[in-house]
């Protein structure tokens, strides 16, 4: 900040400084190339203006060597920037295994978050400094986009699927949270603040919020209320697949294929049970499409994931 005029955004995540390194390299490259071209054009314009005494002999209107070399140079530079950007980008898909998992739900026009302990927040997100955090995003109605400029991250929340974003906050503070994907009338009001706190303060803040019910616990309750346990429970008469440890495991399907039971599979199995039928079971499960909303679906997913011992870091579909 200089004279209160913002030139550069704050850097508050591990990602931010790396993205900025690429950004500033691109900026330097663009400035050099742009100014060089401007200088060239202005220089020519002055030197070869009508009536100037400049030497105009030996002019050529093509030069194979020159044209080849700038084409190849552009290609090489482009590939360097491509490789650099792509290397940083593919890490989005690989969150650390020990990440704190928070669910985020976008709806017109607010963000609703659930901490791992079940504490619910609206348009506020509290995270500890220095610890990886995965936010699993879903959308209730239209497409929204989770955007924290200080972290240099952004991810759309799309209705009908779960997406993920992860980050390690590095600086305690108070940062803007925006919805970046236009989502209707109050789009610009949709957002709030991300508060990054030292781990002790974060723990204290969690406590002060009261020990809410965890998402998984709510999911378990829902699992009984909706009658899922009637078939999937151990003692049920109807034969339905047992769900203990299902998350992340391969499932054999009736059509001889095998899929990994990821979030996409579980979500589809609840909403579209006839789509992929587990081998050896009757397709008797009713669809819950329209009976539960995105928030409840997130609870059920959290519960199913909690039945699996391994860390449930996000795997993208």
């Amino acid at each position: 900040m200089s004279f209160g005029i913002p030139f550069f955004p704050q850097e508050a995540s591990s990602e931010a400084s790396q993205v900025d390194a690429l950004f500033y390299t691109l900026l330097a490259f663009s400035a050099v190339l742009g100014l060089a071209l401007t200088g060239l054009v202005v220089g020519y314009a002055v030197k070869y203006r009508v009536g100037s005494p400049a030497d105009r002999t030996g002019q050529r209107s093509r030069n194979m060597w020159l044209e080849m070399s700038w084409t190849i140079a552009s290609l090489i530079i482009a590939f360097i920037f491509f490789g650099w950007g792509a290397t940083l980008f593919v890490r989005r898909d690989h969150p650390p295994a020990d990440a704190l998992e928070i669910t985020g739900l976008g709806k017109q026009w607010m963000w609703e978050f659930r901490q791992p302990g079940g504490q619910r927040e609206i348009n506020e997100l509290h995270v500890p400094v220095g610890k990886p955090v995965v936010v699993s995003l879903a959308a209730q109605d239209v497409i929204h986009s989770f955007f924290v400029p200080a972290f240099r991250i952004k991810q759309d929340a799309v209705p009908g699927r779960t997406t993920h974003i992860w980050f390690i906050a590095t600086e305690p503070g108070h940062y803007h949270l925006f919805c970046a994907q236009y989502c209707g009338t109050q789009h610009s009001e949709m957002g709030g603040w991300v508060t990054v706190m030292a781990p002790e303060q974060y723990a204290a803040w969690l406590n002060s919020q009261g020990e809410g019910e965890t998402l998984a616990a709510s999911g378990e309750k829902l699992f009984r209320v909706l009658g899922c346990s009637g078939c999937h429970g151990a003692s049920s008469k109807v034969r339905a697949p047992a769900l203990e440890g299902i998350f992340g495991r391969p499932v054999a399907l009736e059509n001889q294929q095998t899929v990994i039971a990821d979030e996409r599979y579980l979500r589809d199995s609840i909403l579209i049970p006839k789509k992929e039928i587990a081998a050896g079971y009757e397709p008797v499960m009713p669809s819950f499409d329209g009976l539960i909303d995105e928030g409840e679906l997130q609870m059920l997913l959290a519960y199913l994931k909690s039945l699996s011992p391994q860390p449930s870091a996000g795997t993208k579909p």
């Binding site: 579209i272 006839k274 789509k275 397709p283 669809s287 499409d289």
Partner: peptide, 8 residues
């Protein structure tokens, strides 16, 4: 619609 998966 009489059949499996009427939604789709």
């Amino acid at each position: 619609y009489e059949g499996p998966d009427p939604v789709h």
